[in-house]
Computed example of a mutant assay.
Amino acid sequence: MASRPATLALVATGGFLGAMARYGVALLGPGLAGTFLANVTGCLALGYVFYTAAATERISPETRLFVATGFLSSYTTYSTFALQTTEASPAWGVLNVLGNYACGFVAVVLGRRLALGEWR
């Protein structure tokens, strides 16, 4: 495992890059669509990284810190999701909540299946 300063640098660098990627997604798809895309693709990536790291040695602890704790924590956005949901009409708000959670859970499962080679 990396030293404390190295760990902080990994998380900070990953966080910076994740925030920049999130901004890019917001430019491509502003509003609910961009947030949905970031959250679902982030869930897919997190499922893949977590289960790859847990089941194999293909992802080091340092890479997991950089990607999962740093990049993906900045890339996905619960606070924006919550704010946009409260600003949407009631019907869109309900659809946004259901869509983000349903698709997010499915994306994590797909990430796990990709990581573990569970395609049958």
Rank of each mutant, 00 (worst) to 15 (best):
M1K: 09
S3F: 06
S3K: 12
P5N: 14
A6W: 09
T7K: 14
L8M: 15
A9T: 14
L10F: 13
V11T: 11
T13G: 09
G14L: 01
G14P: 04
L17N: 08
R22F: 08
A26R: 05
L27A: 14
L28Y: 00
G29R: 08
G34Y: 06
G34V: 04
G34I: 04
A38V: 02
G42H: 04
A45L: 15
L46I: 15
L46H: 03
Y48V: 08
Y48G: 04
Y51N: 13
Y51Q: 13
A55E: 13
T56A: 02
I59M: 09
I59D: 04
P61A: 13
P61H: 09
T63Q: 09
L65R: 09
L65H: 07
L65I: 05
F66R: 00
F66K: 03
V67N: 06
A68M: 10
G70A: 10
G70E: 09
F71A: 14
L72V: 08
S73N: 15
S74I: 04
Y75N: 09
T77K: 07
Y78D: 06
S79V: 08
S79K: 07
S79G: 08
A82H: 02
L83G: 09
T85A: 07
T85D: 01
T85R: 03
T86N: 05
W92M: 14
W92T: 12
W92L: 15
G93Q: 08
N96G: 08
N96V: 00
V97S: 02
V97H: 01
L98K: 10
N100W: 03
A102I: 15
A102M: 10
C103Q: 09
V108N: 04
V108H: 03
V109D: 12
R112D: 05
R112P: 03
L114A: 14
A115I: 12
A115G: 12
L116Y: 01
G117L: 08
W119N: 08
